[in-house]
């Protein structure tokens, strides 16, 4: 049976991890390759590398980094951040990335999703949505790393993107991100039930019980987190053992 997936996310700037870690056994805690390989060894099911490098000239660094990751990491990984063309994606996939994620560029130019799906297949096109629940109780799409509000509802955009060819949704709740108070169960459940593609829940995972809750209550396919893994507040083998005891199917 297909297992639920646990996905650590690494933010990358100029080829280095941004937030730092407190893994004492890493020679270079800022090296995304070393950290990624450690997570793979610990039992992470996939990795997401999110590039927040601002400048175009530095983006060449990302392709080189992807190549090094593919060389040393023996599990699948997704690369996102600033991707806006078929050529960008081709370079990343050719160097060993398994999937790419698009966000703002896809919202501004939805045909990008179709172009990527036609060229490389839907299975490698992840649509990332940053969403926030407003006072009217609705979840809206935010762009540019959460800085720009739109009037589009997250569910509407997600459904449209799947029609266009997105093969997976990476859903980040801005209300929950960084709070360690648990994942956004309502919007996650709505997406899982209404979309024919896998959904990754992101934002708010602070305890092992939060992961159990999101899998049990929403049947989401995967859960993503960053700092709780980087700072070793939750280690992946413990998390998987906990989920298994709670009858959630995970890979061991």
């Amino acid at each position: 049976m297909l297992t639920k997936r646990i996905i650590p996310c690494l933010d990358i700037k100029d080829g280095r991890t941004v937030k730092g870690t407190n893994f004492v056994d890493l020679r270079d805690a800022g090296d995304p390759v070393e950290l990624g390989a450690l997570y793979a060894k610990q039992g992470a099911d996939e990795l997401v590398f999110l590039d927040i490098t601002a400048t175009v000239e530095k983006r060449k660094t990302l392709v080189e980094l992807v190549r090094r990751i593919a060389m040393h990491v023996n599990i699948p990984f997704t690369v996102g951040g600033g991707i806006s063309s078929v050529a960008d994606v081709n370079a990343l996939l050719e160097n060993g990335a398994d999937k790419i994620s698009v966000n703002t560029a896809a919202f501004k130019n939805p045909q990008l999703i179709t172009a990527l799906a036609n060229e490389f297949g839907s299975q490698c096109v992840v649509l990332a949505i940053d969403t926030k629940k407003e006072e009217d109780g609705e979840w809206y799409v935010y762009l540019n790393g959460g800085r720009t509000k739109t009037d589009t509802k997250a569910m509407t955009w997600a459904a449209q993107s799947v029609e266009l060819g997105a093969g997976e949704i990476l859903l980040t709740s801005m209300n929950h991100d960084g709070t360690k108070q648990g994942f956004a169960l309502d919007i996650t459940k709505a997406m899982v039930e209404n979309l024919p593609v896998p959904v990754i829940a992101s934002g708010g995972g602070g305890t092992m019980a939060h992961f159990k809750d999101v899998f049990e209550k929403t049947n989401v396919d995967a859960a993503l987190a960053a700092s709780i893994f980087h700072f070793n507040e939750i280690c992946i083998p413990d998390l998987k053992a906990y989920l298994e005891i709670n009858n959630i199917l995970v890979r061991k």
Binding site: L2, Q123, A222
Partner: peptide
């Protein structure tokens, strides 16, 4: 065959 608990394509770890 697409089903509620088996989305197509299959993506992920299986035994």
């Amino acid at each position: 065959p697409a089903g509620k608990d088996c989305k197509v394509p299959q993506i992920g770890w299986n035994n």
